[in-house]
């Protein structure tokens, strides 16, 4: 192999590796977020409860905000807008999904935590956000969230906000999916 061929082969290998790396960044980014708490991403699978003793010296305010994304005639409400919890204690909060539409459909509540560092210490033992929800027309569904803030939550975090945005799930058959001409239009 001449020097040129060797150089070209090596650069092409690096090239391909970098292309694969770009796609590997997607899962790596998730891992990275979970390690550092960037962007307030939370685990989307159930976690085991940590058997901490309860730290009664601290009280953390946990707020819940629910929002409607576009395109789904549903409402997501939280029944306790704000709770005060001790680190280490498990707490249950109730949410209610209501389908105001005239057909059944699928929706997903996408969570986000602020401050983002808090996502590292937020353990969700049960959450409706782990899976997509199916609601029949007019159906109302109450769903619990059981969570725990671990005791190693940094001292300077005193308020944690959890925001759930409700989005339609497009790849499931969704009879009321808004399409075409009126009035929102398409892009």
């Amino acid at each position: 192999m001449t020097g040129v061929q060797r150089t070209v082969t090596r650069t092409v290998v690096v090239l391909l590796a970098m292309f694969v790396f770009a796609f590997a960044l997607v899962p790596l980014y998730d891992v990275f977020c979970r390690i550092t708490g960037i962007n307030g991403k939370v685990e989307n699978t159930a976690q085991a409860m940590v058997r901490d003793s309860i730290d009664e010296s601290r009280v953390i305010t946990v707020q819940f905000v629910t929002r409607a994304g576009a395109g789904l005639p549903w409402k997501l409400e939280v029944l306790n807008r704000q709770v005060r919890v001790h680190p280490g204690a498990a707490t249950e909060v109730h949410f209610a999904f209501t389908n105001h539409g005239s057909t059944a459909g699928w929706g997903r509540a996408v969570p986000s935590v602020s401050p983002s560092e808090a996502s590292l210490y937020m353990r969700k033992i049960t959450c409706f956000c782990f899976q997509e929800q199916r609601l029949a027309a007019g159906e109302r569904l109450e769903a619990p969230l059981v969570f725990q803030l671990t005791r190693d939550l940094p001292d300077d975090i005193k308020t944690v906000t959890l925001v759930y945005t409700l989005y339609p799930v497009d790849d499931k058959p969704l009879a009321t999916k808004a399409t075409s001409v009126v009035p929102g239009g398409e892009t």
Partner: peptide, 29 residues
Amino acid sequence: NPALMEERDRHIATVINGVSGAPMPAFSS
């Protein structure tokens, strides 16, 4: 827009719920 005029319910629903993937937000909130 004849399509819009015919479909009163859909008109209301679109304003309330918005359109996914388009710049039409859900005005219910």
